[in-house]
Design a protein around this nucleic acid. Structure first.
Length: 389
DNA sequence: GTCGTCACG
DNA sequence: ACGTACGTGACGACA
């Protein structure tokens, strides 16, 4: 209903710049391939890389040899393929140009001058919202060009300010709550860095001795736990051997036995009930949890572990949104809630309401549910969306 | 319409 | 022996 304003002129300028680089990359790629072809066609690209240039096939898809970003990276690193790096950059720019820079200005509503996404409450099986036409929950953020796209989103009127708030480590805090793990609880209560803490624990070194590689591995495990990973998945994600990954996982469960117990009991309960529930009793049926097909069954078991966590986070932020709306009405604020991005809320406020909205967001989000660990919401303000990070 | 790919949490 | 981390939506190619 509210919609969010974008600077279309700025995006059109950005578009021109990106197209110049895309054309230049394209002709370099054609030059190295020795012929013109459609770089956007995985089929044609695959013929060039694996047949004409004789590069090794790294992984297969249903229909042929994979050319995804990880494959191209490997071709570059391990086989010295210069064309691979250019293709990855080309793909990146095409993606951002086609999906965002070109598309968004066409979606500005003629009467409101804003972009109006649709949020659905009934698509995602975990209880998350989903956003479409356009999806404003997947606006780029991880790269330099991504940041420049976020700059196009501006408060309107122009002297207003974006106020954004995101939950810190919401899913791991929920894991701490549902497992009652003393180790996780202590880490979150003392306010340290959870991945460093985890690394210290599973590698048996003091936190000051945890380097970035160790922290990264611990981070991989922490996320993997939430997704029901196995050793193979973790090994791939962290680019380590399966045996090594297995050791990390064993070490993790040895130090955090309550997490292991939660996973096992959740799966057992799912087999009994045919469904799992979130903290606020949202239910997800798992019709394939007792399937005789091992793949389907394993998938359902991972889902059984993930859904109570992801779904509780979804419940939690919905409670916060309802209370925020109530507060805004009570206080007769002119500020508007614009976006929800799973663990984050983005609002726009007139200058004289920024302080009040910031405090309100923080308080409402942090008190949405009383868990056994504190909830932390970090609030930021900015003159465009890129400044909220 | 399906596939491969890739953007986000 | 096998496939292999959860949840989404959108794009271009191709049939």
């Amino acid at each position: 209903m509210n919609g969010i304003a974008i600077d279309s002129d700025y995006l059109r300028e950005l578009s021109k710049e990106l197209l110049v680089e895309i054309r230049s990359l394209e002709s370099k790629i054609h030059g190295m391939a020795g012929e013109e072809f459609n770089v956007n066609s995985p089929q044609q690209l695959s013929r060039i890389l694996f047949e004409k240039m004789g590069l090794p096939v790294i992984r297969k898809t249903k229909t042929g040899a994979s050319t995804d970003a990880a494959v191209l990276e490997e071709l570059e690193k391990a086989h010295g393929s210069e064309i691979a790096a250019l293709i990855n950059r080309y793909r990146h720019l095409m993606k951002l140009s086609g999906t965002y820079v070109e598309a968004l200005p066409l979606l500005v509503h003629p009467e409101t001058g804003r972009i109006h996404t649709s949020f659905s409450q009934v698509v995602a099986a975990t209880g998350r919202l989903s956003s479409s036409d356009p999806n404003l929950q997947n606006i780029p953020v991880r790269t330099e060009v991504g940041t420049r796209i976020r700059k196009a989103f501006r408060p309107e009127p122009r002297d207003w300010v974006f106020v954004g708030a995101d939950y810190s480590q919401i899913e791991l805090r929920i894991l701490a709550h549902v497992t009652r793990s003393p180790v996780l609880t202590k880490a979150f209560s003392e306010g340290g860095d959870i991945h460093t803490e985890t690394a210290s624990l599973i590698f048996g070194v003091p936190q000051e001795r945890v380097d970035s590689a160790m922290r990264n591995r611990a981070k991989g495990i922490n996320f993997g736990i939430l997704y029901g990973m196995g050793a193979f998945g973790l090994a791939n994600r962290l680019d380590i051997s399966q045996a090594e990954a297995k050791k990390f996982i064993e070490s993790y469960f040895e130090r955090l036995p309550e997490v292991k117990a939660f996973i096992d009991s959740t799966i057992a309960q799912a087999h009994k009930d045919g469904h799992v529930k979130t903290l606020l009793d949202r239910r997800r049926d798992l019709p394939e949890i007792n399937s005789s097909n091992a793949n389907l069954r394993a998938f359902a078991e991972r889902t059984a572990v993930n859904t109570p966590i992801q779904g509780t986070a979804a419940d939690l932020i919905k409670v916060a949104m309802i209370r925020l709306d109530a507060e805004m009405r009570t206080r007769k604020l002119r500020s508007r809630l614009l976006l929800q991005i799973h663990d984050e809320l983005v609002c726009e406020s007139p200058p004289d309401e920024v302080e009040q909205m910031s405090a309100c967001l923080k308080r409402v989000m942090e008190s949405a549910l009383e868990l056994s660990v504190p909830l932390i919401a970090n609030v930021r303000t900015g003159a465009d969306w890129s400044q909220l990070k």
